[in-house]
Simulated assay, not measured.
Amino acid sequence: MDGRRPDSATVHAILVHGMGRTPVSMLLLAKRLRAAGITTHLFAYSAAFERWLPCVERLSKFITARVGDQRFIIIGHSLGCVLTRAVLPHLARAPELGVFLAPPTMASSYAIKLAQWRLFRLLTGEMGQLLARQDFMDSLPVPDIPLRVYAGIKGPRGSWMPFGDEPNDGILSVKEVQLGTIPVQLLPTIHTVIMNSRQVASDIVAAVNSRA
């Protein structure tokens, strides 16, 4: 990884974890970014106990309080990317870069299948139900900022598997990660650990340095 420190003032990175995870899942990525001189902030939420709009509002306040008028980027994983898309229009200043790790961009086939189960509804709350609604996913704005999108391709494949022979990360197919015409970078990893890819950290540091 390019370990050069950003050449300008402090750069902040807001990291937003995925559904069913905690900020702990983003610690390795945060550590690698801090080693390159980027200040990291881990946003915590609970899909099971928090409603959608209050969570978006809280994320907006979290970002504003931590970045002030300094440079910042946003990194989301899975549902964290959905939260990021929702919060961007509410920010007084846009981030200079968005990084989406395995973002669901359409109604997730997994969420649709599981939404009928009461246990899934209890564990994922309103947010989990929203991921199964195509009208909700279509309502999210496409970010008008430089964006890097990553998808894993090490999920199981075969005619008997949920995604058939489609490349997938075990939770989402690459097709479910595609956001408009934005290029998707494919990584040899699975959904739950995509944030630990060294390439992701290296790419983020290089992108921040290129904008210094």
Rank of each mutant, 00 (worst) to 15 (best):
S202W: 06
T192V: 11
L122K: 13
Y110W: 09
V142H: 00
E50F: 03
V149N: 05
G164V: 14
W117D: 03
P23M: 03
G125P: 04
L53K: 02
S197E: 12
A107C: 14
A36Q: 07
I153D: 05
R198W: 14
K31H: 14
P146L: 14
V142S: 11
V193N: 05
V99G: 01
F100W: 09
I112P: 08
G164D: 07
M106D: 15
D165V: 10
L42W: 02
P103G: 15
L59R: 06
M19F: 01
I171Q: 08
Q185T: 15
L83G: 00
V149Y: 07
S60D: 07
F120E: 03
R51Y: 00
E166Y: 01
L28R: 01
R121Y: 00
M195S: 09
P95C: 03
I112W: 11
P143T: 01
G164M: 11
P167V: 09
D7E: 10
R66E: 03
R58E: 00
G18W: 00
R5N: 12
L59A: 04
G68P: 01
A201E: 00
A206E: 12
G128V: 10
H41M: 13
A206L: 10
R58P: 03
E126G: 11
G180V: 07
L130T: 03
V16K: 04
A47S: 15
L53E: 12
G128E: 01
R148Q: 13
L147I: 05
R66G: 06
A111T: 00
A212N: 13
G125C: 09
A65E: 11
H77Q: 12
G155N: 05
A212Q: 04
Q116D: 05
P143E: 07
L79T: 02
A111K: 03
F163V: 07
R121H: 00
H77S: 01
V16S: 00
V99R: 07
R34A: 15
P183I: 14
H90A: 15
G3T: 13
G37R: 10
Q129K: 12
Q178G: 06
L79F: 15
T10E: 15
A13S: 14
I75K: 02
V56E: 02
S159K: 15
D203K: 06
T192Y: 12
A201F: 08
S139H: 10
I153M: 13
P188T: 13
R58W: 05
A111H: 00
H191S: 08
A36H: 04
V200N: 03
P95L: 02
S60I: 01
C81V: 11
A94Y: 04
I75R: 00
D203Q: 13
H191V: 09
P188A: 14
S173N: 04
I171R: 06
L88W: 07
V174L: 09
K61V: 04
D144H: 02
P6A: 08
Y150S: 08
P95E: 02
V11E: 08
L186P: 02
A206C: 09
V99C: 02
M161D: 08
F120Y: 15
L187W: 13
L42T: 05
L79E: 11
S8P: 05
R21H: 14
F163S: 00
M161T: 10
T84G: 04
